[in-house]
Simulated assay, not measured.
Amino acid sequence: MSKLKVLNYSFQNLSQKNMSFEQVFSHIVQFMEKDRIGNYRLMFGTDSQVHGYYTKFITGIVIQREKKGAWACIRKIIVPRKMTNLHERISYETTLTEEVVSMFTEERKDQLIDIVLPNIYKGASFTIEGHIDIGSGNRNKTRIFVNEMVSRMESIGVEPKIKPDSFVASSYANRYTK
């Protein structure tokens, strides 16, 4: 594996820097094992911001136990040019989200499902969502990309969410793009 690839797969949050994907996955497992009867949402989303000479992309990973907290981290990618074409930027945001989702192999997803599976009759649940920073409202410039990006999320087996329900992209990741 090239050094560039390894550097790209570095995650961070407010308390930890330079986490590997294995460390991220381990945090998610530990978070879920604290309450095996929880309602969990594993959510992914990417947002971007065009700056002077570069474009910053932030992909967020959030594991939320509904009404009982969350653990989250981000992955930062810098593209050394201004990406002003909206379709290119939205498409690349979706690609980066797909890339991180793909790290959650069937085996890893099964490992997470197995945490709550014995307790589904007690109300436990687990869903995987792909949050896309686009909206379908008439005044939203990104509405013409909704079908394309939603189809891409569905094709990788995650439940697509668009604005106003795509808070991992439009709020959490957005905070770190500035």
Rank of each mutant, 00 (worst) to 15 (best):
Met1Tyr: 02
Ser2Tyr: 02
Ser2Ile: 03
Ser2Trp: 10
Lys5Met: 07
Val6Ser: 10
Tyr9Ser: 09
Asn13Glu: 04
Gln16Asp: 08
Lys17Pro: 01
Asn18Ala: 09
Met19Trp: 05
Met19Arg: 08
Glu22Arg: 13
Glu22Asp: 14
Gln23Lys: 09
Gln23Met: 03
Val24Gly: 05
Ser26Trp: 04
Ile28His: 00
Val29Asp: 02
Val29Ala: 00
Val29Ser: 02
Phe31Pro: 11
Phe31Gln: 10
Arg36Glu: 11
Asn39Ser: 13
Asn39Val: 13
Tyr40Leu: 09
Leu42Asp: 06
Met43Asn: 13
Gln49Gly: 00
Gln49Trp: 00
His51Cys: 07
His51Ile: 04
Tyr53Gly: 07
Thr55Phe: 10
Lys56Asp: 11
Lys56Arg: 15
Gly60Ile: 02
Gln64Pro: 00
Gln64His: 06
Glu66Ser: 13
Lys68Gln: 15
Lys68Ile: 06
Ala70Asn: 14
Cys73Arg: 08
Ile74Pro: 00
Arg75Ala: 01
Arg75Tyr: 03
Val79Ser: 07
Pro80Val: 01
Lys82Arg: 15
Met83Ala: 05
Leu86Ala: 10
His87Asp: 14
His87Ser: 11
Ser91Gly: 07
Tyr92Asn: 09
Thr95Gly: 01
Thr97Cys: 07
Glu98Leu: 02
Val100Arg: 02
Val101Gln: 04
Val101Tyr: 04
Ser102Phe: 04
Glu107Gly: 05
Lys109His: 02
Gln111Tyr: 03
Leu112Met: 04
Asp114Leu: 02
Ile115Leu: 10
Pro118Gly: 11
Ile120Ala: 11
Lys122Tyr: 13
Gly123Ser: 08
Gly123Tyr: 11
Ser125Pro: 14
Ser125His: 15
Thr127Cys: 11
Gly130Arg: 14
His131Cys: 02
Ile132Asp: 05
Asp133Leu: 09
Ile134Ala: 06
Gly137Trp: 04
Arg139Lys: 11
Lys141Cys: 03
Thr142Gly: 08
Arg143Cys: 03
Ile144Glu: 06
Met149Gly: 02
Met149Lys: 05
Val150Ala: 09
Met153Leu: 14
Glu154Ser: 13
Ser155Val: 12
Ser155Gln: 10
Ile156Gln: 07
Gly157Arg: 14
Val158Lys: 13
Val158Cys: 12
Pro160Ile: 13
Ile162Met: 03
Lys163Ile: 03
Pro164Trp: 09
Pro164Ile: 03
Phe167Cys: 01
Val168Pro: 00
Ala169Asp: 08
Ser170Phe: 06
Asn174Trp: 10
Arg175Gly: 03
Arg175Ser: 11
Thr177Tyr: 14
Lys178Val: 12
Lys178Cys: 02
